[in-house]
Design a protein around this nucleic acid. Structure first.
Lengths: 335, 335
DNA sequence: ACGGCAACTGAGAACGTTTTCACTGCCCGG
DNA sequence: CCGGGCAGTGAAAACGTTCTCAGTTGCCGT
């Protein structure tokens, strides 16, 4: 088939060991090294990674398992991870689970079989639990979602603070009846809900939270229901961008003007949140920092397997746009 | 470290060969198979893919090299490819080049070293050329971008027809001065430009085309320049979603109402094209079909390495929205 | 009852590397 | 002038599989 190290050795008139040394590290004379390189060129030799990995017992690879590759948050983090890994001479196996625990299980098994050096993942709630009960036997760093406390190195947005910031902002703009819509499949939704609840309590306001599947359609029906209630909310907060999109669509479908009839705020500063009219107020996550920090935690863990578990919280940035403009009290509300 | 097949063999009281057969295919008694499976469970054995690949001389893996993982077009196609590969029992190595020829070169080399079974990629112009001159020695299917004619199996949108459909639509809506903005790094931009040019000629209209880097900012400056010309266009067509986004931003920045002052149309039915006011008219690409067809071509090529090269063109769907509403002739244009 | 065949199992080679170990010169200090 | 590193090189083992080949059964047909 393709040329092996033996073919190169033959072509260069040296032993396979010498070729290996010329390609990698090891004592070798400059003359022979050049000779070998020439033979490599002549034969079109490409090292066989499978053989290399088998012999050296290290894959030189880390796994990156993301919940939704269509979500700019994850692609952004993924880019940063890949970049950091590449600089460290590591390859990345990228997998997409679409929030499906079955696919998560498949990929986790794959990572073991690939003998990856370490793993960065954004797990669903059930998989995080399962992982805590049955460790994989390899270094794991969680991103975006917290697992059981104290079990995994993780790098997260300070979700509670971010939700709180949104609530504070809305209250500051004059809104009082603020509802919250949260995804129910990940720990992140729960944390953001908790932050929302705490902030509302701090302001002496009643929380109104709904938990739904993280899908556009789910948010649409949820908002329709909220708007049909006796005292509909003046503002709604969504815990991720899909839900926020659903809110926008449903508000428009219901003929509500934004922000006059209904203010909206959410998470993730995707390009469309700016292009839409009015622009949507969102929490922007530090994607690159999250990715880089995840790699840092992973490296540290590899270096010190028994070091205490670390949980890094990065804070988001509140990007204020028209969807949460100061509330203009309706001209005349009888009663 | 982790348990090997020998450990399992010892635990089950059989030979390694038997364990291998129990796990894979091969004649083995039901009793022993159960016995082995029990030992696998007891030892927590996970097969070592590196060893398996080395011995069996097949990676069970295909490569997928995409130009921009942040682009919903590519993530959509990637999903379909991965799904089809998984059903065929193949893994996928996913790489993102960000349109950078240097990174393409790195990943192409990686694919060779991983001994992938086949490769699906969306190359830049220069890499497609290079690949035609120096074949990789493994089956390659191009997606989204045509390489040198007759050299690679490929699956593409019928770009010329799609551009033509947009022009026809605009003309039908009453627009005459229609400019086109095209990406210059990929073959796709060129094809769409050609389709635009041909359609304009068919209608007896003068083509006005600009080639720019496929970036939002590039489109913004290009449109600003176009609008500053003596007879600014009534409509502009963009060859990809980034450029379309730039057009929208620049039009708004210039205070042009859409579609009254300027109609817009482009490619790729991303979620924001619907959410924006007015909705943008776009060509929707059949993402899943493209991905599936790419896998089909790859399988066929593996089965018949010497079969003639195939080029599959899929047609897009024109999604009409408000950005190309029928032209209302300005009330009074002196002269 | 015996040869042969089918079904199953084990021993061992092989896949392409890296790495240990041993060996060869050679230089240097004594 | 001789012994001891030291730098460079090759031989061979090892990594964890799969697969060929050669048994070893047990069964069937005659």
């Amino acid at each position: 088939m393709t040329a092996s190290i033996k073919d190169v050795a033959r072509a260069a008139g040296v032993s396979p060991a010498t070729v290996s040394r010329a390609l990698g590290k090891g004592p070798i004379s400059e003359a022979l090294r050049a000779q070998v390189m020439e033979a490599v060129r002549a034969t079109g030799y490409r090292p066989n990674l499978a053989a290399r990995r088998l012999r050296s017992q290290e894959s030189g690879t880390i796994g990156l398992i993301l919940a939704d590759i269509g979500n700019p948050f994850f692609t952004g983090v993924g880019r940063a991870v890949e970049e950091a890994a590449y600089q460290a001479g590591l390859r990345v196996i990228l997998c997409n689970t679409d929030e499906d625990p079955a696919r998560e299980a498949i990929y986790l098994r794959l990572m073991q079989e690939e003998r990856v050096t370490g793993l960065i993942l954004a797990p669903t709630l059930v998989t995080a639990e399962r992982l805590a009960r049955q460790p994989l036997g390899l270094p794991v760093v969680l991103i975006d979602r917290a697992g059981p406390p104290g079990r995994f190195d993780s790098v997260l947005l300070d979700n509670a603070a971010a939700s709180g910031a949104l609530v504070d902002h809305l209250v500051g703009q004059g809104y009082r009846r603020i509802a919250g819509l949260f995804g129910q499949t990940s720990g992140t939704g729960l944390e953001r809900a908790a932050g929302y609840r705490a902030a509302m309590a701090r302001h002496g306001l009643a929380a109104r939270e709904r938990f739904v599947l993280p899908q556009v359609a789910a948010a649409e029906t949820a908002l329709a229901a909220l708007l049909a209630e006796p005292l509909p909310p003046e503002a709604v907060l969504a815990s991720n961008s899909l839900l926020l999109m659903g809110l926008l669509r449903a508000a428009r479908a219901a003929g509500r003007r934004i922000p006059d009839d209904l203010a909206l705020a959410g998470f993730d500063n995707e390009s469309w949140t700016e292009l839409v009219e009015p622009g949507l107020t969102v929490i922007e996550q530090p994607l690159r920092e999250i990715g880089r920090m995840a790699m840092t935690l992973l490296f540290d863990r590899l270096r010190a397997p028994e070091a205490p578990v670390r949980k890094v919280m990065l804070s988001g940035r509140c990007v204020v746009r028209g969807s949460t403009a100061r509330r203009r009290v309706a001209a005349a509300v009888p009663g």
